[in-house]
């Protein structure tokens, strides 16, 4: 996927902060103050045995059309065998400002890695 095409659909900078509407079934309401179709995040599985990977985002009136738009935008060059679409406002994201407390704690905790431990005598194939 070329970067230009990726960014053509919509800014792929994660979920928007649109108000979450829980009572509209699979069709999220358009973001307040942003007329038009709601935003969806697209996940593409490239082949059997691999997991779905975030490919980008797009606008669509409902989930059915979001899948079709995703097919047209993100699988044009044989990239996928399966697509998921998720309303952007259904995704809760970690706070970038809390990076320190969220992600830096594991640093230096060597004992969480197998290599920290000495191999017991006689154990093969490690």
């Amino acid at each position: 996927m070329c970067p230009a095409e990726n960014s053509a659909a919509a800014p792929a900078d994660g979920p928007t902060d649109a108000p979450v509407s829980r009572d509209s079934g699979t069709t999220p309401a358009p973001a307040a103050g942003a007329p038009g179709w709601p935003l969806w995040e697209v996940f593409v599985r490239s082949n059997r045995g691999l997991s779905h990977v975030h490919a980008g985002s797009l606008h669509a009136p409902d989930a059915t059309m979001a899948l079709r738009n995703a097919r047209d935008l993100y699988t044009r060059r044989n990239e996928g065998v399966s697509i998921w679409v998720v309303p952007s406002d259904a995704i809760a994201a970690s706070d970038p400002d809390a990076k320190g407390s969220f992600f830096e704690s594991p640093q230096g905790k060597d004992y969480r890695h197998a290599t920290y431990y000495t191999k017991s005598e006689g154990v093969k194939h490690l």
């Binding site: 053509a8 797009l58 606008h59 738009n69 047209d72 935008l73």
Partner: peptide, 11 residues
Amino acid sequence: PELEEDVALGN
């Protein structure tokens, strides 16, 4: 009518 539909019609 939308960029996504533009691409769909083009495809």
